[in-house]
Simulated scan of single mutants.
Amino acid sequence: MEMERIGPPLRAGERETLRAFLDFHRATLAMKCRGLTDEELRRRSSPPSTLTLLGLLRHMAEVERTWFRRVINAEDIPLIWSETGDFQAAYDPSGCTGAEALEVWQREVAHSRRIERDAESLDVTGHQARWGEDVSLRLVMHHMAHEYARHNGHADFLREAVDGTVGA
């Protein structure tokens, strides 16, 4: 999967800046996974942790789907990787190939981008059922950038453990 990584603008409005930071982080995760085999995507960096790059891809597909489609767009759709609503199931890398996980993640990112672009403003709200609260698209965009940044730190270590590749 190719996803161009472009640095965020130095002077832009809030929405354009949030969108650019989120896309930068999305492209970073894609970069960390690029060129690896399924076996390499399933490799753990520091047992007993079960975290893998494949698990991170699956998790971020679930996060994209939940925040943009289920919360902001109010779509009544199930989780991707769990029929029982278990968010942790996404971390299990045994359920699919790297190509399948990349395709699902890419599809969810496309939905997220469409929902964000179609939204009238960052003040659009959706209901986060797990919190029992309404949240703004602004909060979702910030939360997603935070989620990617945190997991891209994990992806740095995971990729280095696979083949020694380092750097952002």
Rank of each mutant, 00 (worst) to 15 (best):
K32Y: 10
S112D: 07
R5C: 05
F24K: 04
A12N: 04
E16T: 08
R113Y: 01
G35V: 02
G35H: 03
E100H: 10
P8M: 01
A74E: 11
R58T: 09
M141A: 14
E4D: 13
L56D: 00
R117E: 15
E4S: 14
D86G: 09
F68A: 07
T50W: 04
H59P: 06
Y91D: 04
A90K: 02
A145C: 11
V63I: 15
A61K: 10
R159H: 03
R107E: 13
G132A: 03
P47V: 09
F68I: 02
P78V: 07
L41P: 06
D134A: 15
E133M: 14
T66S: 06
R69K: 13
G164P: 07
L137K: 03
E39M: 00
R65C: 10
A20M: 07
T165L: 12
R138E: 08
C96V: 01
A30Q: 13
T165R: 15
I115A: 07
R42D: 00
G126F: 03
W105D: 08
L102S: 09
A61S: 14
R11W: 02
D38H: 04
A161I: 05
H25Q: 15
G85W: 10
P8H: 01
N152S: 03
E64W: 04
E147V: 06
R107P: 01
W81A: 10
G35F: 03
R130E: 11
A110N: 10
L137Y: 09
D86Q: 10
F24D: 11
G98Y: 04
R5A: 08
H154F: 05
R107C: 07
M1L: 13
G98K: 06
L56P: 00
M1N: 06
V104R: 10
E108R: 13
P47F: 03
R138N: 07
L53M: 12
I72H: 04
V104A: 06
L29Y: 09
S82D: 12
L122N: 11
R43K: 15
N73S: 10
M3N: 12
R69Q: 14
H142C: 12
R34M: 09
S45D: 13
E4R: 15
F87E: 11
V162P: 04
A90D: 05
K32S: 09
F68L: 14
F21R: 02
T52M: 08
R65P: 09
T97I: 06
F21Q: 05
G153K: 03
P9L: 03
P8Y: 00
E4K: 15
N152Y: 02
L57M: 15
I77S: 11
S94V: 07
S112C: 09
Q128V: 05
R26D: 04
M60V: 05
S82E: 08
A149H: 05
L10P: 00
T52N: 07
E120Y: 02
L10Y: 08
